[in-house]
């Protein structure tokens, strides 16, 4: 009886010891990471999501977003197509297809002008991938949707209005 209690105590101790070791190891890992961040090897935001462009996603107007993405004044282009419903009954799910026919398209961004944050999504198109993306976005209210395309270093855009009968933000 006594022995068993001792055994249990022993195993509990071992367990604690094991945890402590884990914690120590983890602590060591964190210290290395912290040192790397301090040394400027890894930017803190990079440690989490790979180069997520926080500045661009924090913008509140189309012009600011374009600036944050590094573009000058974009030119309107008929070579970009947005396929989206004219009237979206449910703003929480608005299907959007963007096709760019501009040669050397490098990236496609989806902007919703009247959302709390303008930039919804941005896609990098490597060579060999079609300049075509299809996704679904939320819209708080009736707004212009802007497709911003970067091709050969220049920026082009096209707008399309989508009317929303039921907003997709808030509850």
């Amino acid at each position: 009886m006594n022995n068993r209690i001792m055994d249990q105590a022993g195993s509990a101790y071992r367990e604690v010891d094991g945890k402590r070791r884990q914690v120590l190891q983890l602590g060591g890992g964190m210290a290395v990471l912290a040192a790397a961040i301090a040394a400027g090897l890894i930017k803190p935001e990079l440690a989490f999501a790979q180069d997520w462009n926080k500045a661009a996603f924090d913008t509140h107007s189309v012009a600011d977003t374009v600036k944050a993405l590094g573009g000058g004044a974009p030119a309107e282009s008929k070579d970009i197509q947005i396929v989206a419903p004219d009237i979206a009954e449910n703003g929480a799910v608005v299907p959007i297809t963007i096709t760019s026919n501009i040669p050397k398209t490098q990236s496609i961004a989806v902007l919703v002008e009247k959302n709390p944050n303008t930039l919804a999504a941005s896609f990098d198109i490597p060579e060999g991938t079609d300049p075509y993306v299809q996704t679904r976005v939320k819209m708080g209210q009736t707004s212009l949707i802007t497709a911003l395309v970067k091709a050969d270093g220049k920026y082009y855009f096209v707008n399309k209005e989508v009317k929303v009968t039921l907003g997709g933000c808030g509850g």
Partner: peptide, 25 residues
């Protein structure tokens, strides 16, 4: 081993996101 699409998303992408794209190769 070749990246065929990379994307950055904000909060405005719908719940249970859908994505479609095409690539060669």
């Amino acid at each position: 081993d070749k990246t065929v699409l990379s994307a950055q998303w904000g909060t405005a992408v719908s719940k249970n996101p859908f994505l479609s794209f095409r690539f060669k190769g």
